[in-house]
């Protein structure tokens, strides 16, 4: 995400003039996440690939809809965040995803389906789906449930150039067969994965998950309502990474990092992400 520069730009969004620094995206100008424009592949710490196309808006003079998460504002732009075309394309994207992958752990999907009248079941029982593939459990730290993957590219970008620079996973294949994969789909222990978990941090759909969370969900003991989240500092090495400890029943069940930390930008290494066990080997 490029830093907005100082020059001010005025545009019109849904009938109201808005003045923002140049370099701002339409989504940011409209109020960012939570402003009413749905987003899926847009994360806090990754330059969006704008692959999901759920945040599309109408810009006067543009032949096609434009992705609000990525398009920088221009002077005099006239933007409509809701219109027949906008609503139609959002509905279709929600249906396309809802009919091909498992969105059960994706935030807001039910409310958006209702708002845009999306009915993922209308493609029939025979509609091609990726939601029936088995969960990949090949190590004790995290699992990969690609039945839930919407191909937002965030894990690939977090593992790659934007943060971790490990490049252990890439998009492989093409079209509907595209999938996040190691080389030849080798298991994580056979890959160069360093288990930083920075892919889990950015995954918006629960496709990538701590093994501890996966096990508790499977056992029916995962209970977010009774979890606390406490921010503290990692005890390994001298970098001083910020941790958000998710605690249930006096036990750490998941470790994330605040995306607004100037040190981590939401990233950790394997020790910070998974090395908490020593604090809870309890009698």
């Amino acid at each position: 995400m490029s830093e907005p520069t100082t020059a001010a730009i005025t545009l019109n969004i849904d009938g109201a003039d808005v003045t923002v620094p140049s370099g701002t995206t339409i989504l940011q100008a409209a109020g960012g996440r939570g402003c009413g424009i749905p987003t899926l592949c847009y994360g806090d710490t990754i330059t969006p690939k704008n692959a999901c196309r759920v945040c599309m808006v109408e810009v006067e003079g543009s032949r096609v809809l434009v992705p609000s998460c990525s398009r920088p504002v221009e002077p005099g732009m006239v933007v409509r965040t809701r219109s027949e075309r906008v609503d139609h394309s959002r509905k279709m994207v929600l249906e396309f995803l809802g009919s091909s992958v498992d969105l059960s752990l994706t935030d807001h999907v039910d409310e958006w389906n209702a708002e845009y009248g999306a009915d993922p079941t209308r493609y029939g029982a025979d509609a091609a789906t990726l939601a029936d593939q088995p969960v990949k459990v090949d190590n004790d730290l995290y699992i990969r449930d690609y039945a839930k993957c919407i191909l937002c590219y965030q894990c690939v970008d977090a593992c790659g150039e934007q943060w971790q620079n490990s490049f252990v996973i890439e998009i492989a294949g093409r079209g509907f067969d595209s999938r996040v994969s190691t080389e030849n789909d080798v298991s994580l222990p056979d890959s160069a994965c360093v288990y930083c978990g920075n892919c889990i941090q950015v995954c918006p759909t629960g496709a990538l998950m701590f093994k501890s969370e996966y096990d508790m969900r499977s056992a029916g003991t995962w209970d977010e309502e009774h979890q606390t989240v406490v921010d503290t500092i990692c005890a390994f090495c001298g970098v001083g990474c910020n941790l958000s400890l998710h605690v249930q029943d006096n036990t750490i069940v998941k470790v994330m990092s605040p995306s607004d930390s100037s040190i981590t930008h939401g990233n950790l290494c394997v020790k910070g992400r998974f090395g908490f066990q020593h604090a809870q080997n309890r009698p």
Binding site: L97, S100, A127, I150, L151, G175, F176
Partner: peptide
Amino acid sequence: FRDESCGQCVPCRVGTVRQEE
């Protein structure tokens, strides 16, 4: 089109499949 869609964006990746169906 289903074969040749690159798979990057949802409308084309899934849309070409649903169109063929």
